[in-house]
Amino acid sequence: MTTAERGKNYLIHIRFAVIAVICVALMAVDVRSKALSDFRYYLETALYPILAFADSPHKITKIVSNHLKSNNELMEENERLSAENYMQRADILRLKSLESENEAMRKLLNSPMHRTSKRLFAEVVDVGSDIYQRRVVINRGSGSGVYVGMPVISDTGLVGQVISVNYAFSRVLLLSDPNSSIPVVNARNNIRAIANGDGSADELLISNVPRSSDFKAGDKLLTSGLGGVFPEGYPVATVTSVGFSESQPFAFIKAKPMVDTARMRYVLLLWYQRSDYEDPDDKVLARERTDGKVILRQKRIKALIDSMSREQAHLNSASLPEDLPPQVRAQIIEGMNHDGKTSSEAGGPR
């Protein structure tokens, strides 16, 4: 090997070392801080046409398959969808009455109202993602008002939450991602638990549930609403297996997500009002006491104090010197009465 070749090889090692250090530093900064979020926002937005182009084979396949459908198939589909729509509209009628009933009940109990004011339909952009993560890309971004932490559902259950937003698209952290934890409640007996993703698409782990807890295969798990990220009552998963081990303090529970994240094509984004957020107009105040006995007792005590203070003032006026002018005497008695009233108000029952 000549000196020039050795020099070239040496340069390659240095170049790679510099690039490796930059890569590790970038990774650390990107994962641990938000310093690069603006940089990512603009660059990822600029790269959206590539994502859209990568999704085009799927779109073209869909368009072609729609065009190739026969008239009979289309009529059958139309009939089926019409029937489905009719049934759903009938269900919605009942849902509206139930909602208003629930609202009235909550008002009576002074409980805060749960509101999901706005929803947005989005399409999953069919592109592969990093094998280290369970995420999907949807075609709605900050331009449509999407924000980080937004709950995402589909027609079958909970999908996950928005984890990063760009102008034209967003990334959704699926409930099967190892970084995802969802507070759930067992629909059969209201036992609360946490559903964690384990990285595989069709499995969730229900962690830290005592062995004595009543979990059975087939139980439906719904969002509990705790934590304020996901609205309450959306189906999450079905328990598939419950295992126990004498050496472990907790049960080993597995569940299957309701949503087939590999096949889903459309999702719904929810503008969910967090439970810890209080709208000043909707603030629920404690009700005033209306117990008759309490009020009567309070009135009796007040009257007793008033009469005692009057008696005290009368005794004081009797002890005043006889030679005082009538105007001065009246002023002193009035002052005594006033003091008595003030003291009774200050020391009165609360």
């Binding site: 090889n9 390659i12 090692h13 790679f16 690039i19 490796a20 930059i22 890569c23 590790v24 530093a25 970038l26 990774m27 900064v29 990107d30 994962v31 690069l36 990512r40 660059l43 990822e44 790269l47 590539i50 994502l51 592109v127 993602s129 990093d130 280290y132 993560q133 995420r135 890309v137 990063s164 990334r171």
Partner: peptide, 24 residues
């Protein structure tokens, strides 16, 4: 990395390391 939404640098390192090992 940007297209995947992966931590910035991870795929850059994977690609560069493979090319580096071959040429060095």
């Amino acid at each position: 990395d940007l297209l995947y939404g992966a931590p910035l640098g991870i795929n850059a390192l994977i690609l560069t390391a493979q090319v580096y090992l071959v040429i060095s």
